[in-house]
Design a binder for these strands. Structure first.
Lengths: 242, 242
DNA sequence: ACCTCCATGTTGTAGGATGATGCGATCACA
DNA sequence: TGTGATCGCATCATCCTACAACATGGAGGT
């Protein structure tokens, strides 16, 4: 039983400071998403998993609960836990580890795709109420001198409101998710690269977007958003292609 | 202590057949995302939460573990669990409930935005190995007569491989997530609207995409992908604008 | 052959005990 | 009085045992 024949635990993941349930969940999750455990298959019982990983059943339960929350498995009382088919997975996560350097550039690329198109759609679909909310965020940005907490927050709201103005709930969700992830990583960059005096540049870019939205000009909105994102990327040391 | 003065549990959510940890997690999650519990605030201790909800600490732990996995709270040993600021959330979920009618149309719109751009990028970045994988998926589709399990699966792989060919891991993740969600809902539609003989149409559309990718023609790839998605949407009773 | 009932295995929940950790208060000392 | 180290304590992390809820399959009776 101690042999690695089953290929189960064999402690991969050099076990950092992560908690036990996280590690167990990560291992199981990888096995499943790699297809090493076919959909429909029953997982080993919680007791066996506990024995295999050398942890208590409680830890295994927390791990399985997480897999269930992500829609990877379906635990049926009295029967067992079964791996679900991929189409039932309903969560997507981006771990902070993937956000260094290359990851940041890729995330900006994805952001550009979504937001330029969002700006285009918003230009034709926005209501007066939408414009009002977007304008309010703009004013909040204008109030600040430096590019710090308050204005960064207003920036986020600005982008999110534009996404919301498309009337597409999914676009809003995805855009605001990506923006928040990026913003979280900006703080670090800010300490390294002082960009305080770039507020005016930033504001100018936002103004152009807002004007285009108000004018209901899709092409201009898209172009302005693209220009803004290229600038924003550059300001955090990322070059955005196209 | 039994008073509702604190405004905590007072059992909202008419408690369906959901499990206890799910219910507790859902309640806490709603409080947090609604802003009823400000970021930085410390949650009640696990014991108090257990008492408030009338469940065991074990259940509370599973609920809190889920919140932590979603990045909503940060539990520090010996101190407590604290609500995190929104920018640290690292999970996004789409619940199946939102996918009826309007939701489906919106999801297709988002898909179109991502995949048309993905096709454009893939056209210039794809390697020979990418083309091989995409072609293999195409062949698997061609083998099937009807539009059923096997070919639907191959269809998914086809789209995912194109997204992967962009070299952008996030694009791949998001696209495959969306495709899988859509596919899950297709099954139902298929029973209603027999589209078996549309295989050839579908295949033709895919062929055009593949040819454009092989020819490294971005504009054609984008156009072919857009045409395909418009068709695919129509086949499930959704009209895609633009 | 069919139906009923029970033994068994599994997940779900409860409740306690113990270790690890970080914070704050207390106390000793200058 | 001020300063620093030490200790207690609250809290999470993990482990353990036990029982309840539930599903399945087989034994046994009709």
């Amino acid at each position: 039983m101690s042999a690695p024949s089953h290929g189960w635990p064999t402690d991969e993941t050099p076990l950092s400071a992560e908690l036990l349930p996280d590690r167990v969940a990560a291992m199981l999750s990888r096995r499943i998403s790699e297809g090493a455990i076919a959909p429909g298959t029953r997982l080993p019982t919680e007791q066996k998993l506990a024995a295999l990983f050398g942890v208590s059943r409680n830890v295994v339960r927390e791990a399985v609960a997480r897999l269930r929350a992500d829609g990877l498995v379906d635990a049926r009382q009295g029967v067992g836990s079964f791996v679900l088919a991929p189409e039932r997975r309903l969560a997507i996560r981006i771990d902070a580890a993937a956000l260094g350097g290359e990851g940041m550039a890729q995330l900006f690329e994805l952001r550009a795709i979504l937001e330029t198109e969002a700006a285009r759609l918003a230009a034709t679909r926005r209501t007066e109420a939408d414009l009002e909310r977007i304008g309010a965020a703009l004013e909040r940005m204008r109030g600040e001198e430096r590019w710090e907490e308050g204005s960064i927050d207003a920036d986020l709201v600005f982008h999110r409101e534009i996404a919301a103005a498309t009337g597409n709930a999914f676009i809003e969700t995805f855009v605001s998710f990506i923006c928040e992830r990026i913003r979280g990583s900006i703080r670090h960059a800010r300490a390294i690269n002082p960009i305080a005096d770039l507020v005016e540049v930033n504001l100018g870019e936002h103004d152009r977007i807002y004007a285009a939205l108000r004018a209901a000009a899709p092409d201009e909105a898209e172009a302005a958003m693209r220009a803004h994102l290229v600038g924003a990327a550059a300001r955090v040391g990322v070059t955005l292609k196209r």
